[in-house]
């Protein structure tokens, strides 16, 4: 067991973890942040995407011990049901989700992408999300959702909580 400390969604969290536990499982099982989902556990589906020190990573491909001392943002940290972020709101308004299982990873990825590229084209959105598999929507409504969030971002700069 190793004690690690992370700043998760703005809160300091210290937790004892086994060295071989993945970050995803520590977030889900030790910190109760079950919004981060495991869809493949081999780094392809993107459902487990979170931000570590401002970069999107697969939390199934990172050991929790490696996240010691980092700042982690999960989908829970981007908004809550009463204060949804523009991307979360976009997904709801454009029906960018059906079962919702892949959605957290897509929202984290899209949020990061819009920070880097606030005015993307449809194809840029499609390429930016190509590492996140969704089996329900066919992607079109997801692209609409991200573009809607980009439009919202133009109106008012998003304020990550």
């Amino acid at each position: 067991m190793t004690e690690i400390s992370m700043r998760v969604n703005g809160e300091n969290r210290t937790v004892n973890v086994e060295d071989y536990w993945l970050l995803a499982d520590v977030l889900r099982e030790k910190l109760g942040l079950t919004g981060t989902h495991l869809g493949c556990e081999h780094g392809v589906c993107g459902a487990c995407s979170v931000m570590v020190d401002g970069e999107v990573v697969r939390s199934c491909l990172m050991l929790a011990v490696q996240a010691d001392g980092t700042e982690v943002t999960t989908v829970e940290g981007l908004g809550d049901p009463d204060h949804m972020s523009p991307v979360q709101e976009g997904f709801m308004q454009e029906h960018g989700l059906q079962c919702g299982f892949c959605t957290p990873g897509l929202i984290v990825t899209a949020t990061h992408f819009l920070k880097e590229n606030p005015h993307p084209t449809r194809q840029e959105v499609r390429e930016a999300l190509s590492g996140n598999i969704c089996r329900c929507t066919g992607y079109q409504h997801i692209v609409n959702a991200v573009l809607r969030a980009a439009d919202e971002g133009e109106k008012k700069a998003p304020s990550p909580r």
């Binding site: 079950t34 919004g35 989908v75 908004g79 029906h95």
Partner: peptide
């Protein structure tokens, strides 16, 4: 009509069996 459950599902407040 937009889906009410999307407020939960987009903010990581879903409740799937594995959760």
């Amino acid at each position: 009509v937009r889906r009410e459950e999307d407020r939960r599902l987009t903010t990581g407040r879903g409740r799937y069996v594995s959760d």
